[in-house]
Design a protein around this nucleic acid. Sequence first.
DNA 1: ATGGCTAATTGGATTAGA
Length: 257
Amino acid sequence: MRIATYNVNGINARLPVLLQWLSETTPDVVCLQELKAPQDKFPEQAILEAGYRAIWKGQKSWNGVAILSRGDELQESRRVLPGDDQDDQSRYIEATYRDIRIGCLYLPNGNPFPGPKFDYKLRWFDRFITHAANLLETNTPTILAGDFNVIPTDLDAYNPERWIDDALFRPETRAAYASLLEMGWLDSIRKLAPAQRIYTYWDYFRNAYNRNAGLRIDHILLSPPLSGRLVSGGVDRQVRGWEKSSDHAPTWIELSS
DNA sequence: ATGGCTAATTGGATTAGA
């Protein structure tokens, strides 16, 4: 079973690229982030015609998350991250596919540091850690996939010094991510390639993709019941080189069934 | 340090992304 995550940076602007990638790689489940579309502007018909069902939570202008599935249906379990009734940003959706529960997340960017956006990032992260701990306690095979907006270590940035005071690399941010791993979540891509430079994002500026000036900020975490089923994984980095591409590339893993 | 690029909005510039 192949599970992928892809920050599309605008589902409608990205539709041709998304459909091309789906037809070439046929993942079973796809978590999407940054739809940048209101609920009623999600291109459901085109996704259905491509052979996928979808659940999504849209929002005007910003954010927005979706899960696509091939074959079997998704059983939605929640579309809000618990812990703050005032939070109206669309950043979390969760569903079960066959025997696996999947949480699709778009963690706040948090820049600039310091400031209210960074504070919001840490508060959201706290709520997410609480929820992730509750998910582990159920022992249900679970995946947390999405754009974490976290550079976990020096190995995950082309030039770590440049990111020292950035919200993606601040010590508070890295510590929060590390606490997920300490609790038992497995960083699947890093597990498969412990010492390799792997990036999932290259900014639009200064020819970053061709210089391979990238970051690894999109992650797929596995709960302990799934760790033995991890077969392979990678980043479809060539998609970043396509016409009208997102600044992120799709990241995927293969699980044995 | 800054600016570079892209997408969405009811616009003709601004905001956000990372």
